[in-house]
Amino acid sequence: MTIDTNAGGPQHPEPSLRRDEAAAGDARSAPTGTGSRFTRLLGLALIIGGAAVAWLAFVATPPDVVQGESVRLLYVHVPSVSVAYMACMLTTVASAVWLRRRTEWWDLVASSSAEVGAVFTAVTLLSGMVWGQATWGTPWEWDARLTSTLFLFLLLLGYLGLRGATEDRTARGRRSAIVGLLLVPNVIVVNQSVNWWRSLHQDATLFRTDGDFRIEGLQLFTWVFATVVAIGFFVWLLVHRFRVGWLADRAEDRAIDEALAVRRAEGGTGGAP
């Protein structure tokens, strides 16, 4: 994506009246795309890493004794859930920092993380349903972990909906920081209450970890490696999403500056208030 921030727009008649000098200065020196040396190298590494994960997951690792071929979903499902929870934590932490520092940087970190996190949460839910169908014979179980992941997804959609609907940037920051801050506590409350509810009704859960299956050797390595690749992918998406958000805000600033300049030129006032 490329935004030409250097295009020679109409010169402002009175620079001192510029709406936001600092922001406009940033716009001139800001990158014109979302790619950088770092993201290109990371992207290249991720392509290679992703291919390696696919090879390890489909070819190199053996099928599981208990689960058979369906165990290969583990290498998608478990890394994506780790990243989804990490993104959700990052959104909450960045929202908390925003409430103290109130800088655009933290606002964009929180929102970019939420958006990318929503994608990973969706991948988690879908791969989990496929895996559940294959191993338990049902895509859904009213378990605390499944239910709270679904609620995490819904809460993230609410957060993103609120952000998308709020036009004023300061209001957007305040409102989304409150929702972002409450994101993790809300998921924990849902998790605890569902856990409590199900533990009263069910003796055993499908998620018994004792002797369910053990993971070791190449399978363990593949899992860890897939998680590293997933985290790298998250970082890559996060950086790009952050830069898109940053450039979108700069483009909006410039549009306002230009509109002001046009109005002043029409009045021939040279920008006097």
Binding site: F151, L154, L155, L157, G158, G161, L162, V179, L182, N186, V190, S193
Partner: peptide, 8 residues
């Protein structure tokens, strides 16, 4: 959308 998941 904001309220109901929280009130679950």
């Amino acid at each position: 959308l904001l309220m109901l998941p929280v009130l679950a």
